[in-house]
Amino acid sequence: MPIPNGDSDWVFEASGLKKEHDDGRVQALRGVDFRIQQGEFVAIVGPSGSGKSTLLQMLGALDHPSAGTLTYRGASLVERADLASYRAHEIGFIFQAFHLLPTFTALENVQIPMFETHRSVSEREHRAIELLKAVGLETRQHHFPAKLSGGERQRVAIARSLANGASVLLADEPTGNLDSESAALILDLIVRLRREQHFTLILVTHDLGIARQAARIIEMKDGRIVSDALNKEPT
């Protein structure tokens, strides 16, 4: 695990993190400890049911842990009052199933998170066009999701996740619904954007080939971290 220079460099710190469902009958996380540094590219791998998506939910403040502590930049995420603001401004989410709104065009989908900012209508649109250009979809901005390929939809979703300048990108199996060619292109795009924008990337996958592109790989099994190691030779 990398050692940061000071406390402020830790983006996330988790200690004894647990998540139970159904009154404790299901234990999704059974005491997880880790720290993630600003700018890291971390892959979380593991089989289905290992708890990796649950962990991503905790990091994204989509759900609360049952026990343990989780901090974001030194402050408890659980006790934070403005979780919507955290989700809107601090992090970006990329979903396996894209989750674009079907009745909105690519350009409109990218603008959605910006409603929680003070940007004007024209500023939102201008920013969305820039982001679509960055993901290579400037010519498809007025297309509805149904008229886009899987890869294009995920590129719109990536543009949406970066709409408010997130410093952390959380990706849940971002290539899981794509063919291998599109998957490779999407992964290259995410890696390129991370290099350009220096955001922290936490990517959940069950594909070791994808995980090997990360600088650090956390392996999970049965709700526990079974290994957490630097990848000396990211591909």
Binding site: G60, L62, A84, S85, Y86, R87, A88, H89, G92, F93, F95, H99, L101, I112, P113, F115, E116, R160, S161, N164
Partner: peptide
């Protein structure tokens, strides 16, 4: 439901 949850996940406030 799914859409509303996505809106919440990407930062929309419940009040919105």
């Amino acid at each position: 439901t799914q859409e509303i949850c996505v809106l919440l996940a990407i930062g929309w406030k419940r009040s919105r």
